[in-house]
């Protein structure tokens, strides 16, 4: 066996086989620049076609290849195998989500929650078409730009113990997206989002562990977003309504 082989120790699960996951190891020859996802594709192409995992773009934008690699949530297409100095790399489906099979998680909980925060530009007064588009200066765009980079890869949910302890929690990415639209100069939906964000299991449930921001591959900073939404909601509650006139 070649010296630069690595062992992938994969936590597998097959509902047909039984209710518990089981471990299976694969030996993979390392190529230069190999990512964890490349190693998994080698396994599926050359060793075991039954291994199930999600992937698509291989360039960190589709957000479908998130997995636990040595216990940490990672986008496997951007996680070089040579970063791991150990010979055996442990791979498992994302924490905190139900596992459908092998490395495939069921993220429908997030998909059901997401529309409730209205992650789109919401207007209370529409301009007529003849008035043209809603313009935005580069400075106004810069206010929310990094929060807009979310690819829904769910690494933040896998990193969030609050979500892991109680899946009713709305969660990092969803609140970060609400924050992104609340910061958008073209949006008028903050008052519509506020009641949903004020419900139990929403922003107030977050305890600012901060790990969501650490694992985010796009530097969306969900943890900071949530605290800033708390601040906006608290001011909304404590100050008179007149302080929150809608943007023109």
């Amino acid at each position: 066996m070649a010296n630069d082989d690595i062992i992938l120790r994969v936590e597998r699960y097959d509902p047909e086989r039984g209710p518990r996951p089981y471990a299976q190891s694969y030996r993979v020859p390392v190529r230069k620049g190999m990512m964890v996802l490349d190693a998994l594709n080698y396994v599926r192409d050359e060793l075991d076609s039954s291994l199930a995992f999600r992937w698509s773009c291989r360039m960190g934008i589709c957000g479908s290849c998130g997995m636990m690699v040595n216990g940490m949530p990672k986008l496997t297409c951007q996680d070089p195998v040579d970063r791991y100095r150990v010979r055996a790399i442990r791979i498992a489906a994302l924490d905190h989500f139900p596992v459908i099979r092998d490395l495939v998680s069921d993220i429908s909980d997030f998909m059901e929650k997401l529309p409730n925060i209205q992650p789109w530009i919401t207007r209370t007064e529409e301009k007529p078409l003849s008035a043209g588009e809603y313009l935005q200066t580069p400075e106004e765009r810069a206010l929310y730009a990094n929060h807009a980079a979310c690819i829904n890869c769910m690494l933040c949910y896998a990193a969030c113990p609050v979500y892991g302890l109680d899946e009713r929690f709305l969660g990092p990415a969803a609140i970060a997206l609400a924050h992104r639209y609340n910061l958008d100069s073209r949006d008028q939906g903050e008052a519509l989002r506020a009641p949903y964000l004020s419900l139990s299991h929403s922003v107030w449930e977050c305890t600012f562990v901060g790990e969501c921001s650490e694992v985010c591959p796009k530097h969306v900073m969900p943890a900071e977003s949530i605290q800033r939404e708390k601040l906006r909601l608290a001011l909304r509650w404590l100050l008179p309504r007149a302080a929150f006139r809608r943007r023109p």
């Binding site: 004020s198 139990s200 107030w204 708390k230 608290a234 909304r236 509650w237 404590l238």
Partner: peptide, 14 residues
Amino acid sequence: LERLEPLLWALFSA
């Protein structure tokens, strides 16, 4: 207590 969350959080922060 849930309705007081914004106040309790403000007190927590202070």
